[in-house]
Computed example of a mutant assay.
Amino acid sequence: MNASVSTHNATHYRWGGVCDGWHLLAGDDLSVIEERMPPGATELRHRHARARQFFYVLDGVATLEAGGVTYSLKAGEGLHIPPGTAHQMCNQCTVDLRFMVISAPKSHGDRELVPPDEVE
Rank of each mutant, 00 (worst) to 15 (best):
M1I: 08
M1L: 10
N2W: 11
A3Q: 15
S4Q: 12
S4C: 03
V5G: 01
V5K: 10
V5E: 00
T7Y: 05
T7I: 15
N9T: 09
N9H: 12
N9A: 10
N9W: 09
T11E: 14
H12V: 07
Y13S: 12
R14Y: 10
G16A: 14
V18W: 08
V18R: 15
C19R: 05
G21L: 07
W22I: 06
W22T: 02
W22H: 13
A26T: 01
A26H: 10
A26G: 11
G27K: 09
D28H: 07
S31Y: 08
S31M: 12
I33T: 14
E34N: 05
E35W: 04
E35A: 13
M37I: 01
M37A: 07
P38S: 05
P39W: 08
P39V: 04
T42K: 10
T42Q: 12
E43R: 05
E43D: 13
R45V: 03
H46K: 10
R47T: 03
H48N: 06
H48D: 01
H48E: 00
A49G: 09
R50D: 04
R50Y: 04
A51H: 00
A51D: 00
Q53C: 03
Q53M: 07
Q53E: 13
F55H: 08
F55E: 00
Y56G: 01
V57Y: 00
V57S: 05
L58T: 01
L58E: 01
V61W: 02
V61I: 11
A62C: 10
A62T: 00
T63M: 01
L64P: 02
E65I: 03
A66Y: 02
G67N: 06
G67W: 11
G68I: 07
T70L: 01
Y71M: 00
Y71G: 00
S72M: 07
L73G: 02
K74I: 01
G78M: 06
G78V: 05
L79A: 03
L79P: 02
L79F: 11
H80F: 13
I81R: 03
I81V: 13
P82N: 08
P82V: 08
P82Y: 04
G84I: 05
T85I: 13
T85C: 14
T85P: 01
A86N: 02
H87V: 05
Q88R: 15
M89A: 13
M89P: 10
C90I: 00
C93P: 01
C93Y: 00
T94W: 11
T94Y: 12
D96N: 15
D96P: 08
D96R: 08
D96E: 12
L97N: 04
R98T: 06
F99P: 06
F99H: 06
M100E: 02
V101D: 07
I102F: 11
S103F: 05
A104C: 12
K106I: 04
K106G: 12
S107A: 15
H108Y: 15
G109F: 13
G109D: 12
G109I: 04
G109A: 12
G109Y: 08
D110E: 07
R111I: 14
R111H: 10
R111L: 13
E112G: 11
E112Y: 15
V114S: 13
P116L: 15
P116C: 09
E118Y: 14
V119N: 14
E120C: 06
